[in-house]
Design a protein around this nucleic acid. Sequence first.
DNA 1: TAGATTGTTAATCGATTAACAATC
DNA 2: TAGATTGTTAATCGATTAACAATC
Lengths: 215, 215
Amino acid sequence: MSTKRDNISLSVIRRLPRYHRFLHDLMLSGVTRISSRELSERMGLTASQIRQDLNCFGGFGQQGYGYIVEQLYDEISRILGVGNNLPTILLGAGNLGHAIASHMVFEDRGFHLIGIFDRDPKLQGQEINGIPISSGDCLEEFCKQNKPVVAILCLPRDAVFDIAKRLVEWGVEGFWNFSHFDLSLHFPNIVVENVHLGDSLLTLSYRVSEHRRQE
Amino acid sequence: MSTKRDNISLSVIRRLPRYHRFLHDLMLSGVTRISSRELSERMGLTASQIRQDLNCFGGFGQQGYGYIVEQLYDEISRILGVGNNLPTILLGAGNLGHAIASHMVFEDRGFHLIGIFDRDPKLQGQEINGIPISSGDCLEEFCKQNKPVVAILCLPRDAVFDIAKRLVEWGVEGFWNFSHFDLSLHFPNIVVENVHLGDSLLTLSYRVSEHRRQE
DNA sequence: TAGATTGTTAATCGATTAACAATC
DNA sequence: TAGATTGTTAATCGATTAACAATC
């Protein structure tokens, strides 16, 4: 009943967090049971898609009845690895890095932030959420001792390649990449999740301009 | 030669900023001419896809020769609307909003940031990049006078719906949405570009966990 | 001209939707 | 049991890749 999982497509995976979010809200509003049809209406997609997606991982529903909200939520939490607490470091505590470190709740999403690094001596010694900002000098030592699995990259583009290369050597397996550097081209065996804010903004520019053109 | 454009798919649009980026880099490194094959190798996709994508908008190449880098860059800039300077406001100047306002170069990407708003009295009066943070009270007045077309939402989830509703009434046509609120469900005729950092992080969690499982 | 590479049409592949038998 | 809704197979749709004639 628990896990079929066999090369799930990225399209499916990217929908899971949204299911997770909606199920969480349903729980908060006291809904205990939901059918794929009702969930599909609330989320703006098809019931078929929901059933297909969920059945990549197992049969979580019950014919004639639907899905138990809390149970489905727990299953998706487990699938997403919410309890995994992957040891994580953040590189680059400038504007963006600082905001990410203080704004995100990592613990609820499968991560445990254990270190923050920045070259700028002015930042060193400061703390974010109780984690001190260290200089890059001690990074190798830190990695060998604490074995971070994930690194968040809020560095300027030019600094990324060198640091990423070393981090991979020291055992990092995944990057949350905010820089405009195409990491996956250089590290094909590493997981890279990009947040390309500039690309997102340009996409918005195109779409708004197009939208205005059609009026 | 200039613009065919006829219901371009979002998949194509989302690749344009990346082409734009790569062409920019090529220009910087002094490359003046490139074939779809060589660009495809550098970007890690197929030559076919590049030619298909570009031909949604027009025939920018030359048989037997390839593409002139600078010319193609300019065309894509124009397609993306980089010169449009859409008047834009930012709502919510907390950690994340502050970082976005100070970190992003809006002017190079089709936007012109003209106002920042936050309810917190402590922030009011402060400036980010020369733009003062105003209270929400004057928002309606401001919109009527300055007609912002785009709004960046860095607000807590619960505040989003009400503000978005009013902004749409006052003429806003597009949102850059950092909140975990599904705007597009409520405003089907508005352009919404989501940056769901939490979803991105959960996706990373899944993928890294999966990656580790397979070793 | 011959060689190269585009623009475009056709073939393939993958993702979404529809349909329905299984079953709670 | 009858009604409802799942899990799953089949059909459709869209996106990517391959092929090639047009042409610089």
